[in-house]
Structures are given as C-alpha cells and as structure tokens.
Design a binder for these strands. Structure first.
Lengths: 143, 143
DNA sequence: CCCAAAAAATGACATTTGTCATATTTCGGA
DNA sequence: TCCGAAATATGACAAATGTCATTTTTTGGG
C-alpha cells in the first residue's frame, strides 16, 4: 500500500503536529525514539518534507522541526506523493494498463470503490484534521 | 498492495484457467507473451504454484501447465499468500502494532472497511468464479 | 533404449528500497 | 569572531525484489 518511508513520514509528521510548535521545536534524534524509526533515516525523510514545505525546520542551536499554521493545512496525500511519488495508489490491482469501470479486470470491483474512497480521504483530510482526532481521543498514535 | 510477483501469478493463473485444459496444456513460453511477463520469470512462479497444487503441470513432450477441476476451486487469496507470504494484506496503513477498531491509528478508518472487504472477496472468490466473469464478458483479461 | 521436448532447479545479476555513517553548512551565544 | 549545536548533504552498505541464463531431471516417441 504505502512504502515504509511513507509510513515513517506520516508518523513523524503526526508526532510533530501533536508535540511540537514554533516555540517548542523537536530535533530529529528526539523524534526517532517515540515513533520507533532510526534517527538518520527519519532525518533524511524530514529533510525531504522540509524541502517541500510540509514541515518547518530551523538550523543551529535551539533548532529543530515543527509545523507552522500553513504546514498543518497540508492534505495527507501530499506527504505520500512526496515520498512515494505520484499515483502510487492509482493503478489497478493487477497493474493492467487500461483497466477501468467500462472494461474492468477480473479483480477490479474488489478494489475500485475503496481505492477512490481512500484517495478522497487522503485528499480531503489535512494533518490538522488528524491532530483533532488524536486530541479528542478518537484516534491514537502509539509507536 | 500486491507484489509484482503476485500480480504476474494471478494473471498467469487466470490465463491458464481460460485457455488451457488437461487436453490442451500450455507451455511457459507460450504464456509469457500474452500476459507480457518474461518467460523465465513466469516459469519460476508457475513452479511455485505447481508445488502448492494451485496449477497442474506435466513434464516432457506434450507437457505444459493447466488447471484441473480441483485447481479451479482455489480461492484467489491462496495465490497471493503463496507468492507474497501470509497476511501481507493484514497490517494497518501505518504498520502500527496494536491498531484496531478499539484503539485506531489516525488513518485506521480510511482503510479498515475496505481491507476487510477486499480480503473477504479474495477469500470467497475462486479462480473459477473469475473465469465465469470473463466468459460472461463482465470482466476482461488483456495483457 | 536413446533422443528430444519440456518442466524443474539453481544460481547469477540488476534494481529498488531501506539503513547507517560521515562530512558539511548554518546559526546563536559566549 | 570563534565554538558548538543542529540541520543538511552525501555516499556507502544491506536486504528484498525482480530479471535473466544455465543446467538438471523427467517423459513420450521412434
């Protein structure tokens, strides 16, 4: 579904969204442990995300990562697209070129409705929407 | 979602199910072209499937691959499990250990219903069910 | 009983993905 | 203005996946 990298990126971003702020930046090495991802690896991912304006970062002493107001409005799909590349979620279950509703492959209907449903959710929900759920305790963010 | 290997295996099995029979076996090299998969690669996959009694094979002259009555009754999930290993489809979108309906991760509800839905379909539908759809022209099997 | 056809087995190689280690740059504070 | 803290950059390495080539075994037919 998603690559490991995307999963890690999502976890890191969510962790930052909940725990960091401009006045309380978090260093890569302090994100690593709670989300259970090697430090150097999460650094590399955060650099990618930073370059794409999905997270904010400040170098030097008292530096670290956090999300500003704008960052929080990022739709979840953007994170996946940056890390995994576009339309990783777009292809048919069997990767058949011209599989569509008119000329479906045998497994098409097993996945089609859901896939669009999932995509809609990833497009319409922002990081901030997820944070609300976590703060309202309707969803959880363990390691 | 599935690995390439699983996709290829599914395509090969469906191709055999539609086009081969005990009296009309098909050689690996003749499956390769219509489903657009390298010959040696599809051979390896078919050997795997043959060892697990998902396809039938006969060596020597006039040999080849086909599906017998029993093979046709195989649920689709079995093919995926043999090639990709068990429960590749079981984990949560973020691969969080104890993510479930009671303690869902933030993305849980985006995927949960679909995943169970897809799994049910793969478990309850056999190769033969797919062949029926293809013959009834409600689904299609291009390359 | 040998020969050729075909599956089966084995292993080499390439690519992608994931992981780690080591520089390099930037910045604030003493 | 220099030092150390931290992000950033780069590249090496490992593992999984995908691809290809070669050899071995089995089998039917002449």
């Amino acid at each position: 579904m998603f690559s490991n990298s995307s999963k890690y990126a999502l976890k890191a971003v969510l962790y930052l969204a909940v725990n960091a702020s401009e006045s309380n930046k978090i260093m890569a090495k302090n994100i690593s442990e709670p989300i259970n991802v090697p430090q150097a690896y999460i650094s590399k991912l955060l650099q990618d995300l930073s370059r794409h304006d999905i997270v904010s970062s400040v170098r030097g002493p008292n530096g670290g990562f956090y999300l500003n107001e704008q960052n929080l409005k990022t739709p979840l799909i953007t994170i996946v697209n940056v890390i995994d590349g576009e339309n990783r979620l777009n292809s048919c279950l069997l990767s058949i070129q011209n599989c569509n509703n008119d000329k479906p492959c045998p497994l098409h209907h097993f996945a089609a409705s859901y896939r669009t449903h999932l995509l809609e959710n990833l497009e319409n929900n922002t990081i901030n929407d997820m944070v609300k759920g976590i703060k309202a305790k309707t969803s959880f963010l363990p390691l």
